[in-house]
């Protein structure tokens, strides 16, 4: 199989980038998309050119490292698939593919197809801790969790933080990601003590990192390799409303970002 690739090349974060066209041949249908790029890179190295930089680690669709747009679709646009798991059999000989990195203010391009996603880490950090007993291992089933809730938490925890939701969103919103992280802990008994401050802090962090907001297009849901549903965004919205409207006997600890707003 022979392909024409139109790849975004950018030497570093503060250099201007542009699309460069490459021809790649000898691609077999059982190769993964990243293996196809490996072939291209070997070719480039032999010619003495800089290889195309892209992020990858497990290549089994569970680490969340890889991801870029193929012809305008995050991870290539196949349901529940990361780009590393996308097989070349979905492409035809002679196809022309445009590869572009995630584009968002919060995801600056570091090099070629690699973006800095540490804004996601900071959203997770803003969620803070959960109070759990330390010391000897607790009895299994000491805290009972309804099946439905444990399933919901598990579905939410499936988020690998690849950033495809932000990339596909017309508003570059991180609400699907944040909602998965919030829902994961907010539906479990272990997440209850810090539930409200977690909701307030993480939503404020999302804004601070310059992500956009949800307009319910559903583009994120369509490209999410872990098929996180839009439903979780609704759950997050309710958790935020709950945190804001709850009448309290004692003030709760919140990040300075939230505090400013709460004391107006």
């Amino acid at each position: 199989m022979k392909l024409t690739l139109n790849v975004w090349r950018q030497a570093s974060a503060n250099r201007a980038g542009s699309f460069v066209t490459y021809e790649v041949s000898g691609i077999t249908p059982d190769m993964s998309f990243l293996e196809m790029l490996d072939v291209l890179n070997e070719d480039l190295l032999t010619k003495g050119e800089a290889p195309v930089a892209f992020e990858h680690d497990c290549r089994e669709g569970i680490c969340g490292s890889c991801g870029f747009l193929v012809n305008g679709k995050a991870h290539g646009g196949h349901k529940g698939t990361t780009i590393c798991q996308l097989a070349m059999r979905f492409f035809k000989d002679g196809d022309s593919l445009t590869l572009e990195p995630w584009r968002a203010k919060a995801f600056p391009v570091i090099r070629d197809l690699v973006v800095d996603r540490s804004s996601f880490d900071r959203i997770i950090q803003s969620g803070g801790f959960i109070t759990v007993p330390t010391g000897s291992a607790p009895n299994a089933n000491a805290i009972l969790v309804p099946k439905e809730n444990s399933d919901t938490a598990f579905d939410a925890a499936a988020c690998i933080g690849c950033g495809a939701c932000v990339a596909a969103c017309p508003n570059a919103s991180a609400m699907l990601f944040t909602s998965a992280k919030i829902t994961h802990l907010n539906v479990l008994p272990q997440g209850q003590p810090q539930r409200d401050q977690r909701s307030l802090n993480m939503v404020a962090a999302m804004k601070e990192e310059m992500f956009g907001t949800c307009t319910n297009h559903g583009e994120c849901e369509a490209v999410c390799p872990k098929e996180i549903p839009l439903e979780f965004i609704g759950k997050m919205n309710r958790d935020l409303a709950r945190a804001v409207f709850k009448r309290r006997r004692e003030p709760i600890p919140v990040s300075p970002l939230v505090q400013e707003a709460m004391q107006k």
């Binding site: 900071r122 950090q125 801790f129 401050q197 600890p253 919140v254 990040s255 970002l257 939230v258 709460m262």
Partner: peptide
Amino acid sequence: VHSGAQAPRA
């Protein structure tokens, strides 16, 4: 980091 861990209460 926007954590509220050490933040005053509100």
